[in-house]
Amino acid sequence: MQSGTQARKYRLQGAGLDLALPYLMLAPGLMIVLGVLVYPLLDGLKASTRTYRYGSPISDVGLQNYVHLWSDAQFLNSLWVTVKFVALSVSIEAVLGFALALFCLREFRGIRLLRTVLIIPMVITPVVVAIVFRLIYASDAGMLTALSEAMGGGAMQILGNPLNAFIGLVVLDVWEWTPLMFLILLAGLQSLPQEPFEAARVDGAGAWRVFADLTFPMMRPVLAVAIVLRTIDAFGTFDQVFVLTRGGPGEATRLVSIYGYDTAFKFQQTGYAAALFVTIGLVVLALAFSAIRLLRRIDAS
């Protein structure tokens, strides 16, 4: 009798721990997420409704910061530069990445080495990449100038010329992030079923028709995910620009991230900068959602 009660007690104790255990094990991770993700987000939202002086909030201004953004010519220009930069880089990366992935799908001697080499740019720290490109672009001792002089030309003005600096930035981004596109698209291509492609060859399709009628339609979801990922990422580009041009010359390469950084740390307008970044966040979120919805619609039809 006594041992029966004892056994029930143990079982209850065990059950209690079993119920609590999942929450106990989740707790540390949850705390970290709350501390480093949720709290800063909420604090940033709060900051975006205030005015700061000497680093301390002095007044609540409601949504005034947000309203002011849309009449700020510098912000609008930086937004335009960012959109141009993102559209240009991401589309070039998508096309190049797709082409490389298609090429690397074949099996031949040395293909593994080639695939590995193609990933390297992505692995290098962005600041280091920017420093290297600064050396390449430098008008006095840069690689391009050296090349140009060797062929009898003059010094190359890359970072000093607004258009060239912008193009230089796009080239840097393409060099660094095409590998990511390549990697995602290669994985996507490798996961496609083989038989439809063989069936198409038997049915009479040449290489181009196979691509247009099978590969591309079947890859559309993967391509969309890769583009959305890269777009979100490219909107936040900061380190490379900061090292390469700091947004110059003039405002030619001043992306919103640089403008926001300047606003917050150079001009000490913390509240305004917070509002700016919240706005950009919402814009990117909206872009991503609409891209995914568009994709679903295409798939469903």
Partner: peptide, 21 residues
Amino acid sequence: LQPRDRDIAMVFQSYALYPQM
């Protein structure tokens, strides 16, 4: 010859239909 020049038709074990069409 390439498959398309052989004037043949093939049915595959996995059917190999074109999923997007």
